[in-house]
Design a protein around this nucleic acid. Structure first.
Length: 228
DNA sequence: AAGTTAATCAACCGCTTTTTC
DNA sequence: AGAAAAAGCGGTTGATTAACT
């Protein structure tokens, strides 16, 4: 049995007071980030180490960028989510000054709803209920789409230690392995905002995302290809 | 102005992964 | 190599605020 991370009776919970914040800031300024478990005692805080770590990382760190997400940040989150799934810390790592918690909250409260409104499934970044285009060629891709999707689902639920990968991330990883259309380079760069996004079905400009049938390995379903 | 609902976000919880012994 | 401890992560909750009736 695992011991609790702290003595629950002796720790404060809930919102942090200014004094607590200051104690934590002062301590880390002089001693640096070290052992979180021993930090509360050393800093004179009645909090558990996890709580201190979270408070520091998500709120008190000097390089935190607060305020609304810029359009380019939002687009980058969507792009990275399509590649990585719900791996918020990895996504946040590509957004200077943003925390995983902040990115996760922003995704759940803003981006998710936005995508749903646009008819896009936020879990796999595909359009919902789109008529299948008549494209008989490229049989090698289209013939096994269903099984590929099933395979993705199986992977997620298979219970292995490294299977904590969401549908979106794992599927894209798998499907893009033989396709060079989607740029998997994750070096930090602001995506081009000027690129006009076009719905290929009727050539109308889209809101902010482009749909490219078959771009990520399937021409059975129109696949969302982000920010080409 | 008061009550209700929706949206937002900080913080907690429990699980997984990594590190240390 | 295995167990325990520590750190990290993602899902969820609950308090607060804003918008609406």
């Amino acid at each position: 049995m695992r011991k609790p991370c702290c003595d629950k009776q002796d720790t404060n919970k809930g919102a942090w007071s200014k004094q607590e914040d200051q104690k934590l800031i002062d301590y880390i300024r002089t001693h640096g980030e070290g052992c979180w478990r021993s930090l509360p005692k050393a800093a004179g805080l009645h909090r558990c180490g996890k709580s201190c770590r979270l408070r520091w990382i998500n709120y008190l760190r000097p390089d935190i960028k607060r305020g609304n997400f810029a359009q380019d940040e939002e687009e980058l989150i969507i792009k990275l989510h399509a590649l990585l799934g719900n791996r918020w810390s990895l996504i946040a790592g590509r957004l200077p000054g943003r925390t995983d918690n902040e990115v996760k909250n922003y995704w759940n409260s803003h981006i998710r709803k936005k995508l749903i409104k646009m008819g896009i499934d936020p879990n796999n970044h595909r359009l919902n209920h789109i008529p299948r285009p008549q494209r008989p060629q490229r049989d090698d891709f289209s013939s096994n789409v269903t099984s590929k999707n099933e395979a993705c689902k199986t992977k997620v639920t298979s219970g292995g230690n490294n299977d904590r990968v969401s549908d979106a991330g794992s599927c894209l990883e798998d499907e893009t392995s033989g396709d060079s259309t989607l740029n998997l380079d994750l070096t930090i760069s602001v995506p081009s905002l000027s690129s006009t996004l076009v719905d290929e079905d009727n050539n109308k400009p889209q809101n902010s995302l482009s749909l490219v049938p078959g771009a990520v390995g399937s021409d059975e379903l129109p696949t969302l290809l982000l920010f080409r």
